[in-house]
Amino acid sequence: MSIFGYLCEVDNPKDLLDLSKKVYHAGYIKFDTYTPFPVHGIDKAMGIPLSRVPYLSLIGCLIGLTGAIALQVWTNGFDYPIALSGKPFVALPAFVPVTFELTILFTAFFTVFGMFAINKLPQWNQPIFNNESIKKATCSGFFLAISSDDKNFDIEKTKLFLERSGGKNIEAINH
């Protein structure tokens, strides 16, 4: 394919929702929209499934929880027992604060770095950045791009379809 896809602009969030619905219902899967802030309802309009980030957070949470208990029980209970303040070597109530903190810490790591992984960040170079106009998407522009990898993509028909559906300033995303 000679181009990566088409990029078009609309005026406001509502037009973007309408255009996304049309693109999605026309059977396109590999398309994306670019907005300065998360537009309410765009996930439904584009048919994006629920985020998988919470599952990763849960995994992080469980790792933190079990890791923290194991660390404290093994170090203070078995490897280096400290007789202190009349407490048993394995004093679970006294281990609660550190367990809590490490659970939070691991949940946070898995949430943030899991989100990066799912979003494929960092990815400093993307085909979309070849178009100067996309710079507006982080300020005030609302864009939609259809990838040429989509099975319904056609150099002529897709362009015509975007024009008819209300997309403005249609550009090819070049190499």
């Binding site: 994306d32 929209t33 670019y34 907005t35 300065p36 998360p38 537009v39 765009i42 996930d43 584009m46 994006i48 985020s51 998988r52 980030v53 919470p54 957070s57 949430t111 943030v112 899991g114 989100m115 990066f116 799912i118 979003n119 960040l121 960092p122 990815q123 400093w124 170079n125 993307q126 979309i128 950045f129 996309i134 998407a137 982080t138």
Partner: peptide, 17 residues
């Protein structure tokens, strides 16, 4: 900025995180 483009498919995960 890690190559953030404002993609809605990324915003969904971003907001959840």
């Amino acid at each position: 900025a890690l190559g953030w483009s404002g993609s809605s498919r990324q915003w969904i995960n971003y907001e959840k995180a």
